Structures are given as C-alpha cells and as structure tokens.
Amino acid sequence: MTSVAEYIEALPDHQRALGEQLEQLLTAGLPAAAARLWHSHPVWMVGKQPIAGFKAFPQYITLLLWQGQRIKDESKLLSPSGSAEMAVLKLSSLDELDSELLASWLSQLARL
C-alpha cells in the first residue's frame, strides 16, 4: 500500500465510507497539509509535522489529532492519548462522525 486512496480502498466494507468521509474532511479542513501514509496509516502533515490522521482497527477507526489536547473541545468527545498533546476519537460508524465538530477541531489545529 503506497497511498491514502489505497489504504481506504483496502478497508473492510463496514469502514470504507467512514474512511472516505474522514479523508474528505481532513483534506478540506487542513488545506496547508499534505496527506500521506505515515507509519502505515493516513496522516495529514505540514512539512514533517503530523497534524491529524486516522488508523483503522477491526471494530473502529481512531481519529488522531496530534495537538488535540491544545484545542477547545466543548463536546468532551476527545480523549487524551500518550504522553504528548495527542487526542483521539474512536469511531465505529459513519453515523458517529459529526462533520461540523471535526471541522471546528481542524480549524483550531490549523491555527496552532
């Protein structure tokens, strides 16, 4: 697998629509970032700095926001992850994805 499109195409049927929607929202919400596979999953980066991405697991897709702990999340849906400023959101279906909320988060990340 060498591209984000190939990663999404290889997702199981129950995750593909979610992967496609995340790709569209991340690309639109982070216009200065370039999408690429990094550590085998899609990540949007500015230069060598990862901003956001996602990784598929058998039962869910995890949205990854590298500086997610620095943004305002009134929804309280983001969970801190790791020792840095990473925050994540586990999504089991497309119905769980709030496009407007994600756009707000991405807008905040783009300004950091």
Rank of each mutant, 00 (worst) to 15 (best):
M1Q: 01
M1I: 02
T2V: 07
E6P: 01
I8Q: 04
A10H: 08
A10F: 05
L11I: 08
L11E: 09
P12V: 02
P12I: 01
D13L: 11
D13A: 15
D13H: 10
H14P: 01
H14K: 14
Q15W: 00
Q15R: 01
R16P: 09
A17N: 13
G19E: 00
Q21S: 04
E23P: 01
E23R: 13
E23T: 09
E23V: 06
E23S: 11
Q24L: 15
Q24D: 14
Q24Y: 10
L25E: 13
L25T: 11
L26I: 06
T27G: 00
A28N: 10
G29C: 01
G29I: 01
L30Y: 05
L30M: 12
P31M: 08
A32K: 15
A33Q: 08
A33F: 10
A33M: 06
A34S: 06
A35G: 14
R36M: 03
H39C: 08
S40M: 02
S40G: 01
H41G: 12
V43C: 07
V43T: 12
W44D: 03
W44T: 06
M45K: 09
V46G: 03
K48C: 00
I51S: 02
I51R: 08
A52V: 05
G53V: 14
G53T: 12
F54V: 10
F54R: 11
F54W: 13
A56R: 03
F57R: 05
P58W: 08
P58K: 13
Q59A: 11
Y60G: 03
Y60H: 15
I61V: 15
T62Y: 11
T62D: 10
T62I: 08
T62R: 13
L64S: 10
L64G: 06
L64C: 09
Q67E: 14
Q67C: 07
G68L: 04
Q69I: 02
Q69C: 05
R70D: 15
R70G: 10
I71Q: 02
I71R: 04
I71K: 04
K72W: 11
D73Y: 14
D73W: 09
E74Q: 13
E74A: 15
K76S: 15
K76T: 10
L77F: 04
P80S: 15
P80V: 09
S81N: 15
S81L: 15
G82I: 14
G82R: 12
S83F: 09
S83P: 05
S83G: 13
A84Y: 09
K90V: 03
L91G: 10
L91Q: 09
L91F: 14
S92K: 15
S93Q: 00
S93A: 02
L94S: 03
L94H: 04
L94T: 10
L94V: 09
D95P: 04
E96G: 12
E96H: 07
E96R: 07
L97M: 04
D98F: 07
E100K: 14
L101D: 05
A103M: 03
A103L: 06
S104Y: 01
S104R: 04
W105G: 07
W105T: 11
L106Q: 10
S107W: 13
Q108L: 03
